[in-house]
């Protein structure tokens, strides 16, 4: 196992798999929008100072804030 990391720690351009969704005010919304364990996501780019993240997950793109990205625990794909 690699060191645990969240989506906020991932470099732009990397593909990761969500392993766990931490409890957060937006947890329900994250899950309902399809950002759930097992989902593979790509961190496409960030806004200035890493405030918001542009991510891609199977047929759709999302904009999420840093604290929301920090609720998504991920692992690199092989």
């Amino acid at each position: 196992m690699t060191t645990p990391l969240t989506l906020a720690d991932v470099r732009p351009g990397c593909r990761v798999r969500i392993t766990r969704v931490e409890e957060h005010p937006s947890t329900g919304r994250l899950l309902a929008m399809g950002l759930r364990p097992g989902q593979i996501v790509t961190l496409v780019r960030r806004t200035a100072f890493g405030a918001s993240f542009y991510i891609h997950a199977e047929f759709q793109q999302f904009g999420i804030r840093r604290d929301e990205a920090e609720a998504l625990w991920v692992e690199y794909m092989d």
């Binding site: 937006s26 793109q61 904009g63 999420i64 804030r65 929301e68």
Partner: peptide, 11 residues
């Protein structure tokens, strides 16, 4: 209401 950004960027 909790604030959030989390939103779809539709095609």
């Amino acid at each position: 209401e909790p604030g959030y950004l989390l939103m779809e960027l539709p095609d």
